[in-house]
Design a protein around this nucleic acid. Structure first.
Length: 1110
RNA sequence: AAUUAAGUAGUUCAGUUGGAAGAACACAAGUCUGAUAAACUUGGGGUCGCAGGUUCAAAUCCUGUCUUAAUCUCCA
């Protein structure tokens, strides 16, 4: 006996998951899927390293499904796809986590806990959830080599990164500079933007704000601002941080903004003054009531109300006019060492707040520093203990000694002093009395705070190392154009714009757990060495030992603090100390193409074969993260793209479209989802529901629907096949039935199948998984299950093995086998189960798994578009007839005599004729009648063909539509017989052809008619006695079959049937006894007067049936 | 505030040079079934975010605007 196809009690996707996992594991299928493919045909994929210090979420499944699907697809295309896993292990989040858990702060490192101990802790913490990650990876069917991952904290990895840094250094891409960064004086540390984005960091605070009056220096450049000798003209500039005013060195205006000069009185000193501010903001600082008030009266009044000070607009200027004007220093504690106190242009200046003139303190604002540098304006600094320039506020957040009466005062209450006096208020009071403040008030605004100390952050100048990314900008833009982005807009727009506006990359992090910057410097910063390998470090250490008489060696661990103690030596014998900075962790992950192979120290050849990547995929949030760092390093260090194609997926939101987060409690647990619905259903849902780059509204009901619909249908289709193939012993050992000998419907489904293969292959090649998944789904549901199998059921169970039956088996087998392969990249578990269940019986292919098989190729010769079209007709005509039956209340079991089909197009009849039998069987009608000469019989409707006519008729189109809309049956007939129509529009003639109209038959008087676009079907609903009897016969078959089923008879059991005698049954039993017996496998079938058995409803009458095995 | 994407039925989504708006799910009623938690038929459901513009014709092209999300910068 032939081997049997496996059958199942029910579909259980989670069981399939487990079986397949076990099978893959036992037979090393993943390893085989790589090893069996030639090294000469690689498809290079890079795994973006996740950080294992958090638990994996459902959104991780999204990116990983994309990655896995395309890697599996390429494998099935015969390519070798090596997939090395990786772990991102460094960085601030890990440090923060460790500090939180240990209850320490950064200051405690080195005192309460040794750096050594701290790093050890980081190392453990970061790998804490690797088990969960590995578990998810396995359970979701993500094939990646977990046994040999790259880990960014290893010495090998660090050494490779050093090598890249040295390459950049040698190209002049690394430099040290000063930038303004968020800084927490209370914690004594700089903060990254990541830290500022922690929830709750931005808070609304009420601060004292000041509008300062900056007195203009009268000279040649400013003379246009003065109307007379004695005039006191001042700029107004607003600030929410008055403590920065002593550090002011410039004022910025907007080039195109309109400014006014306003004659008025200072509201505190009541001195006459002319102030300059933006026109748009006049109303913000002046009450309209006071405009053009009585200046004399106000000046001479004894008691002055500051709210009643009159004002008058006396002049206006463009911002561009004001640039270059000098003003007097507002608070002169410290003098600048260079150019200062000038009006400059700033592109960031707006008129949404303040006065449209921005106070610039280059030591305390990033924009301030940038615009000051551009204009040659210096910062206000003093010398610190080392003689280096330092801001007027020190790192503890208090004014330096040089700041006069402000010296020693904290700019914010950093020490929680009970008697803290607000410096901003003190400055405001001083300015008021000195006629330098135009307005002082409390103002609520949003300001960032240190997440740990809860104190306001300062923007503070800090030393940092930079990568001169701007120098490689052009090349990055150029090479980006060669990358295939999915979606294209992310690459062209989002990433492209980002490249266009590139800033230099701030590499420095003053933390402990990261890759140390391999640069050693002398104290003055005049001599330095950048180390690119351990070997080089060894040599340098030996040199230093010799020169300086030391006894050092290369540390076993390249992290801090060990590396910090290494001292090197310049060529002329000067001591060099390592720059204490770590590098940005993004540099770690951006270096993975090289560092994962420990390039260039090992695996040179392997690297060459695996660079650049053919494909990477991550979330769209990585655009300026990993996608950028990969690209930047690739371009700067190797003048190459790092990846040729990139898919950036959107977010996974909850079903309401909200972000998933633990706080909302709406996060979906991937393990639970996989456990309940199976990995395949989840993967398929993610790929088919919406394009990966659109945000996905994740709804578990949707996953269940996929399970029921797609996998349920496929399972049932297979079960159906297996049931009968087992009975007939079909094992595909017979020769292929030539396609030409197979019936129409077989050739049709094979044609569709080949079209499907072609389209799915093209979609996957183009990184369009959603389109591919939807096409497969539609084929399985609509065409294979609901049409092919439904119409062919009889072929499988009727009679002995024949050519027709064999053709049916072979066709269905081919469809199932091909579908298994097509869906394997997205649904790896079920597809493999299906493939194996088929292939293990037939042994048609030598592969033990679908993932070792090859994607089928398209046989163009079997694709027959005419055939596909006529089957489409068949489906639609059947639908129309069924809809008519419904309308007329005629069940399908009741045979009808004929269907009337108006023929509008000559090819139509031959097309329909070819599928006639299918339709007749499907709708239970005896014959077709075609009406070719339709005039007088069929009512038609007509409308203009907008597509062809619109272009020609243009604005007359509306009139045309009106005329054509008014056509009666005779007019339509004329159009048809004349093959066109001459349209007369107000004397203008237009020749219209038959093409310019869309004519459909809408009705056949006296018949029951239905339409679907150009198709029209009429049904003859006359019932003869014979038709009625046949209908009854089929009802009897149905009832008896149901009884067989409910009695659990085997489909092959022979039976005997006795039916209670009723008059309505007699004609059917007489005329169709043989038919009924054959259908239900009855050895005897008769009407009897008395019968014991099951009572069944027949058209409203209870009838007793006795059915027994014979 | 800027950039990018999205906005179509109760929900998830199609809708490709502009040509008289669709599917699935859900809901209601029915039909068919020798694989079905299947399928089929019929029905209700739509200001295609809003407002302008171009055009004979706009879900589609243009402008503005609103909402949502991401990113980045800033918050003087």
């Amino acid at each position: 006996m032939a081997k049997q196809y496996k059958t199942y009690k029910k579909l259980d996707l989670t069981e399939v998951d487990q079986e397949m996992l076990k099978f893959w594991e036992e037979h090393q299928v993943f390893e085989k899927s790589v090893e069996e493919r030639s090294k000469d045909n690689p498809f290079v994929f890079y795994e973006g390293p996740p950080s294992a210090n958090g638990k994996p979420g459902i959104h991780h499944m999204m990116a990983r499904t994309i990655k896995d699907s395309f890697c599996r697809y390429r494998t099935m295309k015969g390519m070798r796809v090596e997939r090395k896993a990786g772990w991102d292990t460094h960085g601030l989040p890990i440090e923060l986590k460790v500090e939180k858990e240990l209850g320490i702060t950064k200051e405690d490192i080195g005192t309460k806990i040794s750096v050594d101990e701290y790093n050890k802790q980081c190392r453990e913490t970061v790998m804490r959830f690797t088990d969960q990650w590995n578990d998810l990876t396995t359970k979701m069917g993500y094939w990646v080599d977990l046994d040999d991952p790259y880990i960014t904290y290893t010495n090998e990895y660090i050494e490779s990164v050093w090598n890249i840094l040295q390459r950049l250094y040698n190209k002049g891409y690394l430099y040290k500079g000063y930038t303004i960064q968020p800084y927490s004086p209370a914690a004594g540390t700089g903060l990254s933007s990541h830290e500022l984005n922690q929830p709750g960091c931005y808070k609304d605070v009420k601060d004292t704000t000041v509008v300062g009056q900056f007195k203009i220096v009268k000279n040649e450049a400013s003379s246009f601002l003065f109307d007379n000798e004695d005039e006191d003209v001042r700029f107004l500039a607003w600030t929410t941080t008055p403590w920065t005013l002593p550090s002011n060195t410039a004022l910025a205006v907007g080039k195109k903004i309109n400014y006014l000069k306003v004659d008025t009185f200072n509201p505190y000193t009541f001195e006459r003054v002319s102030v300059v501010l933006a026109e748009d903001l006049l109303k913000k600082w002046f009450k309209a009531d006071n405009e053009n008030g009585d200046f004399e009266a106000f000046a001479s009044a004894e008691k002055k109300d500051r709210n009643k000070a009159p004002y008058k607009v006396v002049a206006n200027y463009k911002g561009a006019d004001l640039a270059g004007v000098d003003y007097e220093q507002l608070l002169d504690y410290v003098q600048p060492k260079g150019d200062a106190f000038r009006v400059i242009l700033g592109d960031f200046v707006t008129t949404s707040d303040g006065t449209g003139i921005v106070h610039i303190a280059p030591t305390f604002g990033a924009d301030d520093k940038r615009v000051a540098d551009q204009n040659g304006i210096v910062a206000l600094t003093v010398e610190d203990e080392q003689g280096n320039p330092a801001p007027l506020v020190d790192k503890q957040g208090k004014f330096v000694d040089e700041a006069g009466e402000l010296a020693g005062r904290y700019v914010k209450n950093y020490k929680d002093a009970a008697d803290y006096e607000n410096v901003d208020v003190a400055i405001a009071v001083k300015l008021k009395t000195e006629n330098k403040a135009f307005n002082v008030q409390k103002y609520e605004h949003n300001y960032p705070h240190c997440w740990r100390t809860d104190k306001p952050v300062l923007y503070y100048p800090l030393d940092s190392w930079f990568v001169r990314a701007t120098a490689a900008k052009e090349r990055m833009v150029e090479l980006n154009k060669t990358i295939k982005w999915k979606p294209a807009s992310t690459g062209e727009k989002r990433f492209g714009n980002w490249l266009e506006n590139l800033n230099d990359w701030n590499l420095s992090r003053s933390r402990y757990w990261g890759i140390p910057l391999p640069i050693w410097r002398n104290e003055e910063g005049t001599k330095e060495k950048c180390i690119g390998s351990i070997e080089e470090l060894e040599k340098e250490i030996a040199f230093a030992n010799e020169q300086l008489g030391l006894d050092q060696s290369v540390p076993k661990d390249l992290h801090r603090p060990y590396i910090d103690s290494v001292v090197l030596c310049s060529e002329d014998g000067e001591k060099l100390v390592r720059e204490l900075d770590l590098i940005d962790v993004w540099f770690d992950s951006g270096s993975m193409p090289y560092a994962q192979w420990h390039y260039p120290f090992e695996n040179q050849e392997k690297f060459q074969r695996n660079f650049p990547a053919d494909f990477i995929a991550e979330g769209v949030d990585q655009t300026r993260g990993w996608f950028y760092t990969l690209h930047a390093i690739g371009v700067m260090a190797f003048d190459s793209v790092a990846y040729k194609a990139v898919v950036s997926n959107g977010l996974v939101l909850d079903k309401q479209g909200r972000k998933m987060s633990k706080r909302w409690g709406n996060a979906v647990n991937p393990f639970e989802t996989i456990g309940k619905y199976g990995a395949d259903a989840t993967r398929w849902y993610m790929m088919s529901n919406s394009n990966p780059w659109d945000n996905l509204k994740f709804d578990l009901d949707g996953v269940d629907e996929v399970r029921k619909k797609l996998f349920g249908t496929l399972y049932n289709t297979y079960s159906f096949f297996a049931l009968y193939a087992n009975i007939d012993g079909f094992d595909y050992s017979q020769d292929e039935v030539p396609l030409a000998d197979r019936p129409e419907i077989d050739r049709w489904v094979i044609s569709l199948l080949n079209s499907l293969v072609k389209e799915v292959d093209a979609d996957l090649n183009d990184y369009e998984p959603t389109s591919a998944a939807r096409k497969i789904q539609s084929f399985v549901l609509d065409n294979l299950s609901n049409w092919y199998v439904r119409l062919c059921r009889r072929r499988f169970w009727k009679g002995e093995m024949s050519t027709d039956k064999l053709a049916a088996y072979q066709t269905l087998y081919t469809c199932l086998d091909t579908v298994a392969k097509l869906m394997a990249p997205i649904a790896p578990f079920f597809s493999d189960r299906l493939y194996k269940d088929l292939n293990e019986v037939t042994q048609k292919e030598p592969h033990m798994s679908v993932h070792l098989a090859f994607l089928p190729t398209t046989d163009e010769s079997v694709i027959d578009k005419d055939l596909e079209q006529r089957m489409d007709y068949a489906q639609r005509i059947s639908s129309l007839v069924l809809s008519l039956r419904k309308k007329e209340n005629l069940r399908v079991r009741q045979p009808l005599q004929r269907v009337l089909l108006p023929i509008l197009d000559p090819s139509f009849q031959s097309q329909v004729e070819a599928v006639k039998d299918l339709i007749l069987t499907e709708v239970n009608v005896k014959e077709f009648e075609y009406i070719t000469d339709t005039s007088g019989i069929v009512n038609k409707s007509i409308k203009p063909n907008f597509k062809t006519l619109g272009r020609r008729m243009g604005k007359h189109m509306k009139s045309v539509a009106k005329v054509v809309g008014g056509f009666n049956q005779e007019d339509i007939a004329n159009v048809e017989t004349n093959g066109g129509y001459t349209l007369d529009l107000d004397g203008e003639k237009f020749e219209l052809t038959l093409e310019d109209f869309v004519i459909t038959s809408s009705d056949i008087p006296g018949w029951s008619v239905a339409n679907d676009g150009p198709l029209t079907v009429a049904l003859d609903i006359t019932l003869t006695d014979e038709l009625k009897a046949e209908g009854t016969a089929r009802e009897l078959v149905n009832r008896i079959q149901n009884l067989r089923k409910s009695k659990d008879f085997n489909v092959t059991d022979r039976i005997r049937v006795e039916i209670e005698k009723h008059d309505m049954l007699v004609p059917a039993m007489e005329m169709f006894n043989e038919y009924i017996s054959a259908e239900v496998l009855a050895d005897s079938l008769q009407l009897v007067d008395e019968v014991q058995g099951d009572i069944v409803d027949m058209d409203g009458t209870d009838v007793t049936f006795a059915v027994s095995k014979s």
